[in-house]
Computed example of a mutant assay.
Amino acid sequence: MGVVAMWEMLKEAIVAYTGLSPATFFTILALALAFYYAISGFFEPPPPPPRIVEREVLPPPVEVGEITEEELKAYDGTDPKKPLLMAIKGQIYDVSQGRGFYGPGGPYALFAGKDASRALAKMSFEEKDLNGDMSGLGPFELEALNDWEFRFMGKYAKVGTIKKTVAATDGPAEDSSQTEDAAVKDEGGPSKNPDEYAHPKEVAVEEVAKE
């Protein structure tokens, strides 16, 4: 059965069941659909308002001044009341806004509360590299460390420095001249007393004068 034959059968059915011409029938059908969509639009619920994501407001960075590496460990993020700090090349930065990276559970949490210069230069997560010792680093590692430093300088606030510790000595250094004098006396050598260097003739003259 061709398309033309099907169309003729449809027109005959419309006239037989509705008593309307095909043109009138389709016009009424189009108007009914338009009216339906117009009315249904009034009863649709309004779209939900856009969701506003509230970001955590962080307190301003607090200067910690010059502290030791041991004191820096207290700012590793385990205490939520303290800022999250990290050091590079002896300079301490407040990385609280990057808590998702450097806070507990973050991919770089091992670096928090430490001077991680060596670890960043070597891209190492080993415990032995979590310190500020830069000795023995190659040129490429130093360049990588400088890149990290520039990134931190542009993103995080500097709040302090690492205090350099100096190994204490047992006591004040002994005067070398005193040590030499003591050694000479112990060996029975000449003393620095000028009277002990007097010529024998001068000694004899002094004894005669006394008599």
Rank of each mutant, 00 (worst) to 15 (best):
W148N: 00
F152Q: 00
L85G: 01
A209W: 04
T179W: 09
M134D: 01
A182N: 07
E70A: 11
K11E: 05
D186V: 13
G77V: 06
A32Q: 05
A209G: 07
F125Y: 13
P190E: 11
A168S: 13
L145V: 06
V159M: 07
G154W: 06
K164V: 14
V62P: 00
G136C: 10
G138E: 04
L72Y: 10
K155E: 02
T165F: 08
A157W: 04
L20Q: 11
L145C: 03
E202A: 11
A204R: 12
A74F: 09
P47R: 15
F150C: 02
F140E: 03
P80V: 12
L85E: 02
V57F: 10
G2E: 12
M123Y: 09
A157R: 13
E211R: 11
A109E: 05
K89N: 04
G41T: 11
T68S: 13
P104E: 01
V3Q: 10
E54D: 03
V208Q: 04
A112S: 07
I52R: 14
G77Q: 04
A5V: 15
L72V: 05
A183I: 12
T27L: 14
A204C: 05
G41C: 08
V205E: 05
M6K: 15
L137Y: 04
K89Q: 08
K122T: 09
G171R: 13
D94S: 01
A144G: 04
D76K: 11
G160F: 08
P83H: 11
E126T: 14
L31E: 02
D175R: 14
D181L: 15
T27Y: 09
E149P: 02
S124H: 10
G154R: 14
H199G: 02
L110M: 10
K164M: 09
S191T: 15
E127V: 12
S40P: 01
Y156G: 02
P194C: 07
A38Q: 06
K164F: 09
G65T: 10
V15N: 03
P22S: 14
I162L: 03
